[in-house]
Design a protein around this nucleic acid. Structure first.
Length: 269
DNA sequence: ATGGTAGCACGGCTA
């Protein structure tokens, strides 16, 4: 099974680009973040015409998540109660006996921002939701733009100089630690090389600016977090950097699609 | 060094 997570930074702007991706890479499951489209405005035909089933949690202007799957999606759930404040950041569905939770976690802006309070609260709610609705014994995969870089080698900047920058900051690392303590493993830590970034920024501080992709100035925040039963099934992770470049004049997203190769679970009797 | 880019939607927010 070829499972992809990809923050497309507007499916409206990236429609043709995503179509080219589907035709070239033919993923079994594609988890997309940042649709920036209401559910009924999503161009469903680009998926259904290629044989995909859909689970969509859209939102106008910002956020929005979607799962496209070659196999049927069961028990679709959208939203994070008590945590997302009405923003569309979670869509879950069961495919081939595996529970997939596609997440677009809040970015948080700066540590002094109310958005950072929201980010930390989102993770509290996510942990509660998991504990209430799922168990670590089941095959479950959280994937998506988690917006936290787990280890020092997952950010390009000097942590001696900037130990508390949002995306790798003690307060949110503590939330991630609690999330993983539910019984989840970040597969990228063993299946990717250090410095194999998935997002290359364009904004913020003056020394973060411009040519970041070219000079490899990124972070690893697009993650696969799985329960123990799935670990032996995970074969490889591939960051498809070629899809971070222009294609036939089409502009790329600022995130790179990340592919996980997973062997299927045995068929349940 | 407080600029720069992209997207939504048309002024300002979000990333």
């Amino acid at each position: 099974m070829k499972i992809v997570t990809w923050n497309v930074n507007s499916l409206k702007a990236r429609k043709e680009y995503v179509e080219a991706f589907l035709d070239a890479e033919k993923p079994d499951i594609l988890a997309i973040q940042e649709l920036k489209l209401e559910t009924d405005k999503v161009p469903k035909d680009i998926f259904t015409s290629r044989g995909y089933h859909l689970a969509i949690h859209g939102q106008k202007q910002w956020n929005g998540v979607l799962i496209a799957s070659k196999k049927e999606i069961h028990d679709i759930h959208v939203g994070l109660p008590e945590g997302d404040e009405g923003q569309s950041r979670l869509v879950a569905g069961t495919i081939e006996g595996i529970r997939f939770v596609n997440l677009y976690c809040p970015q948080g802006s700066e540590e002094t921002s109310p958005k950072y309070v929201y980010k930390l609260g989102f993770f509290d709610a996510l942990i509660s939701w998991l504990e209430k609705n799922h168990s670590k014994e089941e095959p479950i995969m959280l994937l998506g733009d988690i917006n936290i870089a787990p280890r020092p080698c997952d950010v390009y900047w000097d942590l001696q100089e900037k130990p508390s920058i949002v995306t790798h900051h003690p307060a949110e690392l503590q939330k991630l630690e609690r999330l993983l303590a539910f019984g989840l493993t970040d597969l990228g830590q063993s299946l990717q090389e250090e410095g194999d970034f998935t997002f290359f920024d364009y904004r913020s501080f003056w020394d973060f600016r411009r040519r970041r992709f070219r000079y490899d100035l990124g972070v690893r925040i697009d993650l696969f977090l799985v329960s123990d039963v799935l670990i032996p099934h995970a074969k490889s992770i591939d960051v498809l950097r070629t899809w971070r470049h222009k294609k036939k004049g089409m502009k790329p997203s600022d995130h790179v699609p990340v592919v996980l190769e997973l062997t299927p679970l045995p068929i349940q009797p």
